[in-house]
Nucleic acid binder design. Structure first.
Lengths: 242, 242
DNA sequence: ACCTGAACACCGTTCAAGT
DNA sequence: ACCTGAACACCGTTCAAGT
């Protein structure tokens, strides 16, 4: 009879293959969750079907029972992230403030999961949470009195701006990841001085304005740029509000 | 002695390897040109180092003598495309018209090489032609009287808008390519009716505004959307012009 | 300096076979 | 219905060897 001692560890040369009856309990949610974890930790380039499967202790083929293909997985991950967007009660009398707050909320959510924007722009989102956000913005513009056609265009262009900016930001995040730097600030200053150094080597007679204003060109950081562009759009929208 | 007849075709079982002396005459320009050709014909997904090498009748390793890696190749292809942008003489008294015309020119050039935008947004362009375009816009804004800091932000945001829109367009082009449709118009109507059909299945009580205005939401095509967003930005810029 | 074949360490997806 | 191993047809990049 065996003793009641602690179980002996499995010897390393034994391939501890679980019996076929104990199957992995996969599910779409689990796969999406795992995908997001890989995305957050190591970026879009690391997010492969094989990698997600590995993380779930199975082979890549197993995923295809729950997800049509990689594109669908990315869409699902993206919509999961959009679920983090918190929306207030609509108040059309304060439409501009609310649109600004909404945009900053999206900015923060997308930047929290840097690389997800790289997946977003490549697809036409029709997920639950994407619709929720769209309904909020579109409803706000209509209730504030904008004609439906113009409101549709405003929604479309604002969304493009939010995702486009996040995409650009994600490029920097993946460069930060690739470099050995730790803080975003360190990366930002390193990047800015690198650009500035390059600009200083340019022929002044061909690019007088760029070379002459290097410091102005690299002054603003990502969030300042985002806010400036956002105000450009909001002012443009305002001037089309009856 | 051999006859003077027509040369006999090479038998298919003979591997007609050219003698090692006749080396391929590669060059960076040739590689970039070939890359662009593949991109235009079959899209970004088809543009691989191996494919370009194949097109040039050589192995993928040969490219690395002229190009650091795939990223550099994409940057070079992108800047080659930007070289097609034609710029007028700057006339600051007509800055808004000129900025509009410039934007439409960029729109057309980027859409002519659909997928190149997908390569652009992923990199920080420092090429010759990218600088040329930047100098034009920045100089125009400065000469029109805008303070350097604001002009830098306007340049940055306008560029993001142009590339972001082109990127979005390229997604549709690659879907058009994947489908069996021939004309962009056919694709656009198919896409619009598909979206409309999907929206009609949504629960009305949760998304009243979106479901209630389906036709307004899908009415505008790509260029209309682009122009609307452009005017939003130009108006915003104008209101910051002293 | 430029070019090459072979190799390395990866991909997404399919398919027949299992439960 | 769900899961699996093996295979297919691809990737980008490196490296030692050639000229």
């Amino acid at each position: 009879m065996g003793s009641k001692e602690e179980a002996v560890p499995v010897p390393p040369w034994r391939k501890t293959r679980k019996p076929a009856q104990i199957r992995r309990q996969l599910s779409q949610d689990l796969i999406v969750e795992t995908g997001l974890r890989v995305l957050d930790a190591e970026g879009l380039d690391a997010l492969s079907m094989r990698r997600v499967a590995q993380e779930l202790d199975t082979g890549p083929a197993s995923l295809y029972a729950h997800v049509a293909n990689k594109e669908e997985l990315l869409e699902l991950v993206y919509d999961r992230v959009l679920g983090e967007i918190r929306l207030p009660e609509r108040d059309p009398s304060r439409w501009k403030d609310q649109l600004r707050a909404y945009s900053l909320e999206v900015y923060r959510v997308l930047n929290r999961h840097a690389d997800v924007a790289r997946a977003a722009l490549a697809n036409i989102p029709t997920g639950e949470n994407s619709l929720r956000a769209g309904e909020f913005v579109y409803g706000l513009l209509l209730e504030a009195g904008m004609p439906p056609g113009n409101a549709a265009l405003c929604l479309d262009r604002l969304s493009l701006y939010l995702i486009g900016d996040a995409y650009e930001g994600s490029v920097h995040v993946s460069r930060l990841r690739a470099s050995e730097m730790t803080s975003p600030e360190e990366y930002f200053t390193a990047f800015a001085t690198q650009i500035a150094g390059y600009y200083r080597t340019l022929p002044r007679e061909r690019f007088p304005y760029l070379v002459g204003h290097i410091d102005d060109l690299i002054a603003a950081d990502g969030e300042e740029r985002f806010r400036f562009g956002l105000e450009l759009m909001l002012d443009g929208i305002e001037s089309r509000m009856p």
